[in-house]
Structures are given as C-alpha cells and as structure tokens.
Write a protein that binds this DNA or RNA. Sequence first.
DNA 1: CCATTTCTGTGTCATTTGACATAGAGCGGC
DNA 2: GCCGCTCTATGTCAAATGACACAGAAATGG
Lengths: 252, 252
Amino acid sequence: MAKTMTGAVGVRVPCFECALRACGAFKPISELELAFINEMKRDHLVLPPGADIIAAGQEQAELYTLYAGWAFRCKTLPDGRRQILNFLLPGDLIGLQAAMFEASSYGAEALTEVQLCLLPRRKVWQVFENMPELAFDVTWLGAREESHVDENLLSAGRRNATERIAALIISLYKRLDALKLVINGAMPFPLSQQHIADALGLSLVHTNKSLAKLRRLGMFSLSAGTLLLSNPRVLESLSQYFDEETPKRPLI
Amino acid sequence: MAKTMTGAVGVRVPCFECALRACGAFKPISELELAFINEMKRDHLVLPPGADIIAAGQEQAELYTLYAGWAFRCKTLPDGRRQILNFLLPGDLIGLQAAMFEASSYGAEALTEVQLCLLPRRKVWQVFENMPELAFDVTWLGAREESHVDENLLSAGRRNATERIAALIISLYKRLDALKLVINGAMPFPLSQQHIADALGLSLVHTNKSLAKLRRLGMFSLSAGTLLLSNPRVLESLSQYFDEETPKRPLI
DNA sequence: CCATTTCTGTGTCATTTGACATAGAGCGGC
DNA sequence: GCCGCTCTATGTCAAATGACACAGAAATGG
C-alpha cells in the first residue's frame, strides 16, 4: 500500500478549466455558479490506489468531488465482512452523508489513483445560504447516489450471482459511456474479483466461477484492466437491469 | 385491497398543532420556518394499507411527509421479484428522489393505514430559494434515508438470515424508540413475514424458520401486531448492528 | 355464519452459494 | 533473476438458503 504517497501534491485545476466538465455529461452552469465553486474548491488532491478518502467513523469528514479515477464507499462488520455500497466515478460527490452528520457511517476508498477536488465541509452551508441552485444540485446528487444504492440493494437481495454480475457491468458501462469513457464497447475496468464479490455480496470463489461462466457465454472479455463488452443487449436482458443514466447531471 | 378507500378524506392538521413534532424526536424550529412549512402543506391525506403512495415509474411524483403509520419503498424486477428498500416511519420524507428526477425509480406503498402531509413537488424549489435552513434539512433527510439503505445493503450482502432479522428488528426498535413508540420494550410491528422476506432478500419459508429460531432463543415474542423485545442487548450483538439513531432530526 | 383468502408453521428435498485446498500467472522489490 | 506478494483459476465437499407440499390459524367478505 502507498507505494508513491503522492498525497497532497496538488496540481491545482481551476474550475474554469475543468476538463471533466467538457466531456458532455454535465449540465451547463452559469459563470456565477462556476466562480462560486472555484472559490469553494480549496485543494486538488492526488491519492494512490487503496488510500482512504474517508475513514469509517471519521468525524468532520470533508466533501470531495471525484475529478478522475475510481473509488468506492463501503461498510464493514466488526468481524471483518465488508460490503461495497457503490462505486464512484468522475463527477461523483464523495462524503455528502458524512458531511451532514457528526461521524461517517461508511468509509470511502480510492480504487485507482484518484484526483479529488476538496470542498471544505464548513462551506457547504454557504452554498445553501447563497447559491440555491447549487444547493439543489447537491441534493440532486445525493438523490442520485441513493438511487444507485437502491439498485445495488435490489441486486444483493433479489438477483442471483450471474444476474448481479451482469447488472454491475451494465450499470458501470452506462455510467462510463455517459462520461465518454467507453470506446468501441471497451471500458476501463480496474475492479479485482474481490471488489466485485464485496460489492455483490458474494464469495470470492463463487464470483470467479460466475464470471468465468459469463465469459464462456461470450458476454465479455477482460484483460489488462479493460473490459470489452461483446453483447451489451443480451447482458442487459440477462441482468434484468434497465435503469437509464440521466442524460445531463450537475457537476460541483 | 382498498377496503375503506378513505382516500382524500383529509382532516387537515395545521403544522402549528402537529402532534408528531411534540414527541421529542425532532429538532426545534423557528416560527418563520414553521409558517413556511404550513404554507407549503397542501393537503393531509389518509390512505388504507396497501395503497400506492408513489407508483414505480410514476412521473411528477409529489413529496410527502409521513405523519402517521408505516410505509415502505420498493423495487420490483420484471419477473416479479420484489425488494423492499427501506421502511418509512412517522417523520420520514417520502419521494425526495422521485421529486428530483423525471420518473420515480421505485414505488412507495402504505403498510398500515397512513396519514400523509402533501408537499407539492413544484414548491420544493421555493424551499431552496427562500429557506436555506429548510433546504439543508431536506438534504439532511435525504442523507439519512441513504444511510438506512446503506445499512440494508450491508445486511443483504453480508449478514446471514438470522443476523438480518435481528438487525432489522433492532433498527426498527431504535427508530420507534426515538419516536416514543416503544412502551416497556413493546413495539408496534405490522410487518408480515412476506414483508420481512422482501426487505431482507430471503424466501418466505426461510424467513419463517429463522424467525422461529430467534423466538425459540427467547429474543422476542410477537402477537397481535406487537413485538416484545425480551433481550435487546443480546439481539443487538447477535445482529452486529450498532448504528445509533440521531438524537434530534429535522421534521418538514 | 360460512366460504374464501391470506398468513403462519413445518417437513422433505433441490439448488445455490460458501469454504477449503491447491496451483499457476503476473508484478514489484531487491 | 529470484522471492514475496496478490490475483485468478478450478476441484471437491459442506452449509445456507430456496422450492414445493401441505396444514392449521386468522382475517375478510358476502
């Protein structure tokens, strides 16, 4: 862990030059709001894979926007069983719940190297006080995250192992596609099988075997951290997953 | 279904005389905010058990505060498998996600007879525009609901059948206790075993057998819609559920 | 009051998933 | 180049959970 603790080596990206915003997934924003966000952004952090963004139980956690890379939220039982609650992709807010409460009831961890925009928790209130449109967007992003968790709960509770894997891949596919990160059906896929197992409520071994089964069915191939989706339609119907990613969403 | 379609027979309860607010679970509120909420409240509805509060896929769903009774949110797969996402108790907001998006990705259904305060969806924006404190509270309530779903996902993914049931009972116990609805360890418990199964991702039969096992262990007794918790501490450690209900939360 | 339905309880057996063991592939450190 | 690692793969067996069948209890509706 922490091979290159790049830590706070921030190449500060001004929000006016935000490369993420240019990808087309996000709704337009006024100059005023953009200036406010830029003002609020205190730092631009780079963390290595495996780093804690928010520790479970942490008090006074800050709020972040994931600028680049993958992360996830998770909860762990006292005896060590771990459940990944959802995966976080560029543009996602990290730590909204944690910022609303005293202590965070979950942890957030970097999956790949990540870049984060730090939005100090103390300033969240100023958003509500001065920028109602932005406050609404914060709430909107919170609601969207909840709908992801809802879907994951549906998977864990009511889909079998194969369907769960299919639904996970399809949902990530749609989210990445909206960010223009899918090229000819090929998407970045940095998850280990342990991550998949922890996200779907399966054992590692069973995850491995179910993945193998789907691969043998010709649903996808996976190599060097890239997943090639040969048959999105079939996989989608197999997963019984039909939610659509919102065309335009806010970015804060 | 719909034995007494009490429907819109509303005995309008002015927010100034809100009996729920008097129970001590909610944080104090200014006169101004209370007046604003009272102004926003368009109706006071009574719906029978089983009634749809929000239908899955419904567009333009309204926002409600549950004033009395129990409800739940759920998602259903095309082939009919159903997952209850969380249970809703008095003071909970219903339909925040649905109000933020075009269409609701989940359904909300009355479990007992319910009383609802109708907060028109069109007025949500006015809250953000004019009442930043209330807007913050809306977001806070959204975050709290997400943390409930997080916990349920942890259950479905990583707890076994017995632990899931224990965790469900304990979490409902804590929420009801905060509302002063637990009397000498006795709490109202209107769930059928099918509801429990759908909430925990178990089959009906297995739920029945696991419940019987916990009853035989002397953890609780259940009759006439009332659950008597003989051994909260033991049940809690058995469930590995340790989240606390927030002492004071907003009520809108 | 009876007929009907829903809910609960329990036995038997099938299926899914998990646990354990082992092995090879890939990768970083020295 | 070799030694830890971690990650992936696969076989065998065990445990948890689900499916089906049926029966009694309790609510519901004429």
